[in-house]
Amino acid sequence: MIDILNALALLANFVIVPALAYGSQLALGALGVTMIYAVLRFSNFAHGETMSFGAMISVLSTWGLQEAGITIGSLPTALLALPISIVATVCVCLLSDRLIYRYYRTQKAAPVTYLIISVGVLFILSGVIRFIIGPKDQIFADGQRFILKARAFKEMTGLDQGLAIKTTQGVTVITAVVIVALLFWFLNQTRTGKSMRAYSDNEELALLSGINPARVVMITWIITGALAAIAGTLYGLDKGYKPFTYLGLVLPIFSAAIVGGVGNPVGAIFGGFVIAFSEMLLTFAYKRVIAYLTPGEWVPDGLMQLLATDYKLAVSFVILVIVLLIKPTGMFSGKTL
């Protein structure tokens, strides 16, 4: 019995808790991609860099706040910096729409044109980010490191296995829950939110109902920018801010969005967790879990790891491929908010 609990604690410590945090970050990222897709109908390759931009503003604001001696006790200061980062990222999104994307809407450009345009934005953003903060890693998580320390857990439960929950992980999951709840309330209960869903569902009919497309597009960028800033900051907080990793995040984020069905917010969240849990479960070394669950002589020699940790990214790709082969529209057939 104790062994089973130990095995569970082990799994929780190395798979469930990290996957919950990572899944929340992916879900927030995928929500941004999916919102743009649902309303503006293109795949925004620049979303990863938008997240990175948000994270960078958070890093800089955090430094500023720390300099000024403003912190919030045991919680990371970055939480205070988050509103600044949201405002800045939203401004960047609105500016990019005003200067770049809007013109192509009046031209009724093909989706692939937007894709290429988003590559241009991707270039500019990554240049701006590296120009401002440089290419090096920045750690900006402060406050208390752990909500639950491994030793405290052991003392509490009397198990051999520790379970640690980092503050950043807790903050990530709680923030994500709050944000997602707010977003769904907005989309389903408010007049503006419903008009966005209507526009995404049937553009022509939305016009015939007197819905102003310019306003819908603007609100979409505001929400996307906010989501990107939050997702980027949480990811950077959890794993350290590395400017170059965000381009690599585009793949798992798009996979998450497609798994759930592009354009569908519930699907994006679901997809985020599917990707995160698959990555963790497939790259976890099960040797010690098996050791707890079986008599000693059965313990295998190898690590019992299905896939080397380096191939995390391949997991999201394989899931993407499976979805494309079996159900390209995703689990929650998409294209609507």
Binding site: P111, V112, F254, S255, I258, S316, F317, L320
Partner: peptide, 11 residues
């Protein structure tokens, strides 16, 4: 859809 090729090749 055309952007699926883009994402798959990126991957």
């Amino acid at each position: 859809r055309s952007d699926y090729l883009a994402i798959a090749t990126l991957g």
